[in-house]
Design a protein around this nucleic acid. Structure first.
Lengths: 128, 128
DNA sequence: CTAAGTGCAAAATGTTTGCATACTT
DNA sequence: AAGTATGCAAACATTTTGCACTTAG
């Protein structure tokens, strides 16, 4: 069994409040510096929440830190994430478009897209 | 000016010989253990070759290591990389298909794809 | 000869772990 | 009471750096 602890809730609430931003563990720890949570609790809970699929870990290209974002199973399943390299915002590609993309890869290259692993990078409407 | 050194050539040759595989710095250092190149030269040359755009650094999802692969400017410009999560091979999505994908993102979401930053994950024809 | 690169060991960075203590159920 | 989580400090893995020495141009 996993307990509901103050620290876990602090962490999840923080990520939940910023669902469309990707944070490094360090940024998270920093943002919660005034809260009652230690560095190791941050790391352990990030790992715990990830395997509970409440948050998602993403690799970021220039950095060797681990990055995390809130992951709403309801909302994010079957979505493809578009990440703006300028403003850092995450966009969710809707079902029909996502399916078209998936079908296109499957048809032309015989490649079966893994939607939850893939992040597409570029510039969003606002930034370009 | 940058010099052509034995160590730099060892490194580049190794990656060039395995153009469709992604290696961590550690794996590279290990594979070159019998060659005349130190750990720091591996790291410094990986960085140097990356900024010279002869190799490409990619983030991999589970790991906090840096990964690198050979990057042929001639061949890889304008390609989208498809990475098989099972066998690890990299596939290059050809011009016409890549353009269709790019246009589709631009049209439906107003998102301008960055081809060289994006890696699409999934299962290749052979592995699925 | 000069600028750039090398190897080594030490430092820095980001993350994980052992352990005694505290909290949840 | 039992099982789980916490905080701290120490350990760890990967990468970077300082420095004296070597090599390419």
């Amino acid at each position: 069994m996993t307990y509901s602890t103050e620290q876990r809730n602090i962490l999840l609430t923080f990520l939940q409040t910023n669902p469309d931003t990707v944070f490094s563990a360090r940024q998270i720890a920093q943002s919660l510096a005034d809260k009652n949570i230690s560095r190791s609790a941050v790391y352990r809970n990030l790992a715990q929440l990830e395997s509970a699929q409440k948050i998602k870990r993403v690799a970021k290209n220039g950095s060797r830190e681990a990055f995390y974002q809130f992951y709403d199973t309801q909302c994010c399943r079957n979505h493809i994430h578009l990440s703006c390299t300028k403003c850092g915002k995450i966009y969710h590609m809707e079902g029909k478009d996502a399916d078209r993309l998936s079908q296109m890869l499957d048809g032309n290259e015989g490649f079966e897209l893994n939607k939850s692993e893939t992040v597409i990078y570029g510039l969003c409407k606002e930034c370009k």
